[in-house]
């Protein structure tokens, strides 16, 4: 199976709110009337302080949690259950320890009742792309944390999802592995050109990877800043990190956090 030049999915969110009902009836307003349009094939990063509703937004987009009010459409289809075009990478790798790496990657294929044999070669190709050639028959417990998260990404990519949702996928990794993963993610995305929503609390990785960074305010979550990132691609680690514009973007985002008292200026 060759990488079909499949366009990313379009996302259209309007007046989206989420209220969590709690037992002590002090309901939590996690998202407050979010309006957001995402261009097909763009890489959008979301940054915001802890508890601002980033994971909630992702969970709603993934069709895992119902919205309280407002609507989400993926390629024009209203989302009320998981959309077949989406793939999700969660903060922890969530690999099934009783399955081999290859069988973990093929899990979405099994669940969608597609021909597993047909996708085997594609799974191995994906593994090779993230530097895990020949690891297909190993078990997750035989891999390092970084390797496992790579496998989780392969699992999300096996179906070439038009919309890839990632919730702090590199949060648990050490700095070196994280750098490697950021570069790998960029090259995968440059190949696929699908729509990516990348949630992170790392301002630098958001700016480095994305076409567009959304900065969310503390609860209730709103989009405070919608920043277009105009840096040439493919971005290179040292070169981009030395770029004046890159630092300008980072400073702009930090300034918002400082103004809100989330970061202390120094």
């Amino acid at each position: 199976m060759s990488a079909t030049t499949q366009m990313g999915a379009a996302v259209d969110i309007s007046r989206l709110s989420k209220i969590y009902k709690t037992r002590e009836d002090d309901d939590v307003l996690a998202l407050d009337k979010i309006d957001l349009k995402i261009e097909p094939g763009s890489f959008v990063a979301v940054v915001g302080p802890s508890g601002c509703g980033k994971s909630t937004l992702l969970s709603l987009l993934a069709g895992l949690t119902p919205a309280s009010t407002g609507s989400i459409a993926i390629d024009g289809d209203g989302v009320s259950k998981p959309h077949p075009k989406t793939g999700v990478v969660f903060q922890s790798d969530l690999l099934l320890y009783w399955r081999t790496v290859l069988d973990n990657i093929l899990l979405p294929i099994e669940i969608k009742k597609l021909d597993v044999a047909k996708y085997r070669a594609r799974a191995e190709e994906l593994l090779a792309q993230v530097g895990l050639e020949g690891f297909g028959n190993k078990y997750p417990s035989e891999l390092s944390g970084g390797m496992r998260q790579r496998v989780a990404i392969c699992r999300a990519l096996i179906q070439e999802p038009g919309l890839l949702l990632m919730d702090e996928p590199f949060g648990a990794l050490d700095a070196l592995t994280r750098e490697q993963m950021i570069m790998d993610l960029q090259s995968m995305w440059l190949r696929l050109r699908n729509t990516v929503l990348f949630i992170t609390h790392g301002i630098d990785e958001a700016v480095f990877l994305a076409d567009r960074v959304l900065v969310m305010s503390p609860r209730p979550g709103r989009v405070d800043l919608d920043l277009k990132i105009d840096l040439p691609r493919p971005r290179q680690w040292s070169k981009t990190h030395e770029d004046k514009d890159y630092h300008g973007y980072v400073r702009q985002i930090r300034a918002i956090f400082e103004a809100k008292g989330i970061l202390v200026a120094h």
Partner: peptide
């Protein structure tokens, strides 16, 4: 069972 695992397979349409 880790509830996230249920979310994972549900996100695949299980």
């Amino acid at each position: 069972l880790d509830k996230n695992l249920v979310n994972l397979v549900r996100s695949m349409g299980a």
